[in-house]
Write a protein that binds this DNA or RNA. Structure first.
Length: 557
RNA sequence: GUCGCCAUGGUCAAGUGGUCAAGACGUAGCCCUCUCACGGCUGAGUCGGGGGUUCGAUCCCCCCUGGCGAUACCA
């Protein structure tokens, strides 16, 4: 048989037989129903919310079924490689709570089904490619990129499906002697799949394949008829071929990937078939989308364009990983939100996640929703936990503030807890960058007067109000006693004790107690709007409070 | 162009052959209130279009439109 000679001609090195690999990587011994999933990033170093979204699905499926979730680095394209990328991918994923049972690690790898770097699996791919040639399912193709471009434009002109297939696959059934001569001559070539799909019929006459997708149900698609490349001229496999070999040998049960792979599914089905592998269960997730600012159109998240959606962005803004996970869960399984409302204190791991509940259409990323969820998520954390988180964030992203706010973590924790107890806790805290700005007035180093006193208060009243306040000020007053004194000051100075009184009879008063308290509020926080002043004072301490009042009053003397 | 996937308010979405078409975010107003938040109440806002099938379609079928994706020796 020529195929055997051809295989020998192409693969001169010693290669294991595929059967040996079957033995080296036997089926996993796992409980019934256990799912084996994987994440296969290419090492560009860039990873965005969409990747995290998919990684989440993988991890939940494996964890919920007592299966295995592993990391495989898909570095078959050297053009894509970025130094240090694997490390940054792993640490970013880890930050958001994605961790692996096996696979690539920053200092090597772990697990019995490796190597987990595709660049290290060359021999394995070649072994299976050789078998493809022997079986007559693959052949060397010497078409240059110029020739392929010509074929393409001819096909486009003739309104035919573009690609290398059927009569356009010039070397598909080439004479052995000629192939041999070309190879010996040193001509570059790729290895192509010899597709058995029909090529001489119109698209609607093509045979259909049906594939079950765990998210989308039964998919009916035309069979593949393209002689796609399986081994590039440098000997590396294409994604398609590596996917088939790796997911088989690593015994992946569920392939979770974005919907952009749907159109190549027929290729993969044919590959698995020709290789003699069982098909994994595919789970094609909808893509996370965003609105393109320039065009105003919905589009898939892009690595190139959407740096603000990179995981780095959320880390640098200081979104809490839990918040991001909560958000992702709400778009992954829409009943998660209701579950969360019903179970505010349970860990999200207890939620029964399922791929069947996933939506088929792409969700638009909504930062407002993330922020809302973030507020609620931070509410479930203790003040000291948030303080630690913010301090940690500042140490990386805001050095100059870190030195100040992290000096006294207990103080920081008390700041975080302001207004958070009781039945209707405040929801001021969203993400670290916002929190750092929000609390800056608690530190003398950052304290500035930003707002001006309300127009209802004549300038001359300011020192009056403040000196009275200072005179009657007793740090040990409780909240009610404290406010009673403010009312007194307001009344004595000609302001209504209740805003309603002022509303009813505006001519009778200069303003109301709210205006008076605003003066005090500005003196203490520099802002006309803030959480409860009494609580702020309790955290600031008596000394700092008095100092600020005095300093502000001095401005009006 | 061709092929594929998708289609319920601004966003995420539940949903069924007969519903006043859930809920969340956002938004408007009111209430609570020393400010701001929080909370409460109320409101505005949707089944892309056209054909069928049916006593009846948001739901089932077809066409169109729109969005997204694929069309590489990238993944």
């Amino acid at each position: 048989m020529n195929n055997l000679e051809l295989a020998k001609l192409i693969f001169k090195d010693e290669l294991k037989a595929p059967d040996e690999y079957e033995l080296i990587y036997p089926p996993r011994e796992l409980p019934a129903g256990a799912m084996v999933t994987r994440l296969g990033p290419s090492p560009t170093g860039f990873i965005h919310l969409g990747n995290l979204y998919g990684a989440f699905v993988d991890m939940r499926m494996a964890k919920q079924s007592d299966g295995v979730f592993y990391l495989r680095i898909e570095d078959t394209d050297d053009k894509r490689y970025v130094d240090g990328a694997v490390d940054s991918i792993i640490s970013a994923l880890d930050f958001f709570g994605i961790n692996f049972d096996e696979g690539a690690e920053s200092d090597g790898e772990r697990g019995a089904y490796g190597p987990y770097y595709q660049s290290l699996r060359g021999e394995i791919y070649r072994a299976y490619a050789k078998k493809m040639v022997e079986d007559g399912y693959a052949y060397p193709c010497f078409l240059t990129s110029e020739e392929i471009a010509e074929i393409r434009s001819a096909q486009e002109a003739a309104k035919e499906t573009p690609g290398v297939y059927g009569k356009y696959a010039k070397y598909r059934n080439e004479e052995f002697e000629l192939v041999k001569a070309l190879i010996e001559e040193g001509r570059e070539y790729v290895l192509r799949l010899k597709s058995s799909g029909k090529t001489d019929v119109s698209p609607d006459e093509m045979s259909q394949i049906t594939v079950f997708d765990a998210i989308r149900g039964e998919l009916v698609m035309p069979e593949n008829n393209q002689d796609i490349v399986i081994l590039k001229s440098n000997g590396m496999p294409t994604y398609h071929f590596a996917h088939a070999v790796d997911d088989h040998l690593m015994r992946t049960t569920h392939v979770v990937r974005g919907a952009e792979w749907l159109s190549t599914l027929p290729v993969h089905v044919e590959l698995f078939e020709k290789l003699g592998f069982d098909l994994p269960i595919y789970c094609h997730t909808a893509q996370l989308m965003k609105i393109d600012e320039e065009t105003g159109q919905k589009r898939k998240l892009s690595k190139r364009l959407d740096s603000e959606l990179s995981l780095d962005y959320y880390m640098s803004q200081g979104y809490h990983p839990l918040a991001v996970r909560e958000y992702l869960l709400t778009i992954l399984n829409s009943d998660y939100e209701e579950w969360r409302i019903a179970n505010p204190d349970r860990a999200n791991e207890e939620f029964d996640f399922s791929v069947e509940k996933m939506n088929n259409s792409g969700a638009l990323f909504d930062i407002l929703k993330l922020q809302d969820i973030s507020k609620d998520t931070l509410l479930r954390l203790r003040g000291d936990e948030i303080a630690d988180f913010v301090a940690n964030w500042a140490s990386k992203y805001r050095r100059e503030q870190y030195d100040v706010i992290a000096q006294d973590l207990e103080y920081l924790a008390r700041i975080m807890d302001i207004g958070r107890s009781g039945a209707k806790p405040r929801k001021d805290l969203i993400y670290a960058a916002q929190i750092a700005d929000f609390i800056s007035y608690f530190f003398d180093e950052f304290f500035v007067i930003k707002d001006s006193i309300p127009p209802e208060v004549p300038t001359g009243d300011v020192p009056l109000i403040l000196s009275k306040y200072l005179d009657s000020f007793d740090f040990s007053d409780d909240s009610q006693q404290w406010f009673e004194k403010i009312r007194e000051i307001a009344r004595d100075a000609g302001y209504a004790e209740k805003p309603k009184d002022y509303k009813k009879e505006p001519d009778k008063y200069k303003g109301h107690v709210g205006h008076v308290s605003t003066v005090i509020r500005i003196a203490i926080t520099g802002l006309s709007q803030s959480p409860d002043i009494w609580e702020i004072q309790q955290v600031l301490g008596e000394e700092r409070t008095r100092a600020r009042i005095e300093k502000f009053a001095a401005l009006y003397r």
